[in-house]
Design a protein around this nucleic acid. Sequence first.
DNA 1: ACAAATAGTGGAAGCACTTCCAAATAAATA
DNA 2: TATTTATTTGGAAGTGCTTCCACTATTTGT
Lengths: 348, 348
Amino acid sequence: MPVTIYDIAKTASVGVGTVSRVLNNHPNVSPKTRERVLKVAHELNYQPHAFAQGLARKKTNTIAAIIPFFTNYFFLEVLQGIQDKILTLGYDIMLYGLNENDPEQFESYLLRATQKGRADGVMLFSLRLPEFFAQKYKHINQPMILVDCAHQDFDSITVDNRAGAYAATKHFIDLGHEKIGMINANPISPPAQQRFEGYKAALTENGLSFNQNFYKSSKIMKYDGFSREAGYVSMMEVLDLPKDERPTAIFVSSDVQAMGVLSAMRDHNLQAPDDIAIVGFDDIELAQHIGLTTVSQPMYEMGVLSVGRMLDRLANRNGAVTHTSFTPKLIIRETCGQLKTKLAAVDE
Amino acid sequence: MPVTIYDIAKTASVGVGTVSRVLNNHPNVSPKTRERVLKVAHELNYQPHAFAQGLARKKTNTIAAIIPFFTNYFFLEVLQGIQDKILTLGYDIMLYGLNENDPEQFESYLLRATQKGRADGVMLFSLRLPEFFAQKYKHINQPMILVDCAHQDFDSITVDNRAGAYAATKHFIDLGHEKIGMINANPISPPAQQRFEGYKAALTENGLSFNQNFYKSSKIMKYDGFSREAGYVSMMEVLDLPKDERPTAIFVSSDVQAMGVLSAMRDHNLQAPDDIAIVGFDDIELAQHIGLTTVSQPMYEMGVLSVGRMLDRLANRNGAVTHTSFTPKLIIRETCGQLKTKLAAVDE
DNA sequence: ACAAATAGTGGAAGCACTTCCAAATAAATA
DNA sequence: TATTTATTTGGAAGTGCTTCCACTATTTGT
């Protein structure tokens, strides 16, 4: 039933080699034969068998993507970038979506994605690569590129969390704030650490000192503390402080957390930016709906770029490992407020 | 370099047939041989070649999913359901994500997903299947199952839009509203039509008449009018009406649109539910953050079920076509307000 | 017109597996 | 113990394609 190149060969009275050559645009086949074969192929409604091609070519034309489906939808836009780029290049995407932060499931996906003959390469998103796996994997001749996470032995594309956090904090300083706090996710997460560093650097490099009372990090493990609940809890702690000991502005390490922060404020009948100014991080879709000032990452571009890296790597397996970092940019909306002086003028 | 079953066969001094039998848990292989082969396979760190298996078995163990990435993130949760279910079954997912509503891209994905030897079946999400393709496809012996869309010739899993809209509208009626409006997406979209029908039915079956002035449908083509902008524009029209001619409650055909509706209200210094009560449809993540009453679809379950259908179909290609419909349920939050009488008592 | 180079072609071998068939071995029956 | 039956086993054939090698047909040069 399914038509193969043998059927074409027979019908067009040529050899299978010739058919293959025509189909793959190899030179060295006369125009008349080429045309005849093409005609027959079309008439028979021929479709190449993907797996057979893959087997013979030792190439799957597929790349695997392991993506955390939970938290912040960061991946979604990156995925869109990848999608657009990759399909124009004739590759397909094999999707492995983690629904929760389960190391076992992660590993099983990793194993599966890296199975021989399944995909030409794998892309890993926002997931910490277990060291033992990295070691094991290095010897396999299959490229892996890391997006929003890093490992010295593999190509990576990341966002400069430190710079983003710095920009957010600096913005508060420029607005005239002096009591600037931060609500962080769980510090075991590298991005959380980096964002904290940026925050601290902005403070100290601009003549403000780091005040432990204004800094809350989460101990919640789920989603590494990048959750609405974590933000809520931390903000509640902040609001336990007497009114005049509270920070006047808070940089929150993610937009989802900022959602929780905002809820906590509402529960205390407080408003951003009037009572406390807020800046988030990520620029999830929600952010624009609620007017959250936040730090935006060029997600789509990261996706596109990561595909480029993958192809480079596929073409040249032994090139030097590269690490690319994008600088995120501050998107100013309502929750950060305006210049303090201006505000004061209006208020009083 | 890569180890094949021949390597195992040689090392274990058995034939390749035996190796294959062991690896596939066929009976008729003595315990000792089985053990020996297994041991060697493990020592050599053997991994079966996915494509070679696929070719020989005439089965890819992959299913393709064509999904619109744009609008309402409905698909995301469905995808999670699919993901969880499918991987436990040993299948992989090939992802084809449409970034925009581009028929050409859609068709190219469709072609690709249905390519011979690429996937065992394809799942189509929220996408209208072109009739010519349906006809063409029917003859291919590859299952296709439709999620959130339908076609008589293929299995489908949908949501009962009519029932959902009915429930939303009925809720307003129960709350005592009499001037109940609807802001709809573009009526060319089947779900939009169905939701409109449900709205209308609820009205007429409960002694209220349909008032053309309270109904606004969108002419916007982008996303079939399921967008924030569309909602905003329609609501602005509504708000052009003199205050006492406006509806007191509005059912909006999607949550994204409801976002726009709410913005429009804010721009007029109006609040839900105090000034106008609002109910949406979809229950996107946003909805709970902003307290939007809405109609929720069992998305995860739909994903899980769709995988089940796919496997059934894979096992029995000639069974009767099935159409499953889920009844969505009303999630009551803040934007719909409370009983009119109660409200009045508080207000005055 | 003839040799030498080139273009075009058929088909075998290989890709890494599964599966079937026949042969060999072991177990069970008489 | 001889014979039948059941269990194991090796390996060839097949899956649909690419690629290489040898061979033929066509040009080109002289």
